[in-house]
Design a protein around this nucleic acid. Sequence first.
DNA 1: GAAACGATTATCT
DNA 2: GATAATCGTTTCA
Length: 217
Amino acid sequence: MSSGAIRRTPLPRAFYARPAEEVARDLLGAFLHTRQGGADALGRIVETEAYVGPHDAASHAAERIGRTSRNAAMFGAPGSAYVYRSYGVHWCLNAVTDRADFPAAVLIRAVEPVRGLAAMRARRARGGRVPADRDLARGPGRLTQAFAITGALDGHELVAPPLRILAGAPVPGRDVVVCPRVGISRAVDWPLRFCLRGSSWISRSVPAAGTPRAPER
DNA sequence: GAAACGATTATCT
DNA sequence: GATAATCGTTTCA
C-alpha cells in the first residue's frame, strides 16, 4: 500500500549543506521515514540539537578529540547519516551538515509517530510490555529503536531508502523554541536545542522562559 | 590491558 | 526528581 507519506519529497543534499544550527531549526516539521523488515515507519520531527563544529566542545568531533573511528561519518558529505551508540546501549541518529571534512551534525531527538505505529510498538516492546504511544519515539535512543535504525546505517545517504528525511510543511518562527542542549557537560549554555512549541512528543520539557543563566565571568 | 566516560533509558520514590 | 543499568569508545599506562 503506497501512501501520501511515501510520496513526499526527500530533502535534497543541498538542504544539509548549511551550518548545523540552521539545519537543526529547519528540520522541525520534516518527516523521518524508514522501511525496515517490510514495515514503514513515519514520524514528524519535533526536537533536534545542533553540534556545530570542532569549536563545539560538546561535539563528538570537538577539536580536542579529532577524527576517530566512531565519529568518522561526521566528516562525510552533508546529507548523510551519523549513527553512534550511546551508553553502550542505544543508537542515536544524526544528519551530517555543513561541508565534507568539517564535522557538524544534527541529532534527531524526538519525532511524533505518524504511520507504522504497530511496527513501532512491536520494536519498542520489552518483556511483553508495550510502551504508551507517547513514549514510542520520545528521545534519541527510543526513536532509533522504533524506526529500526542501527549502526548499519552509519554513513547512509538520507535521500535514499531505507532511511530518509522527507520535506514537511515549514514551521513558522513563533512555533520554534530554542534552549540549551540535553545531557552534555561542556558548552552547556549554547542555545542549540530546537523544539516544536507546545509539542507533547519532545523528550524533555523546555526550561521556563527567563530561566536565569549563570553569569559570564 | 585497565579505567573512565558518556549527545540515555527504565524504574523506582 | 534520583539512581541504577550497561557496554562501546577512547585514553592512558
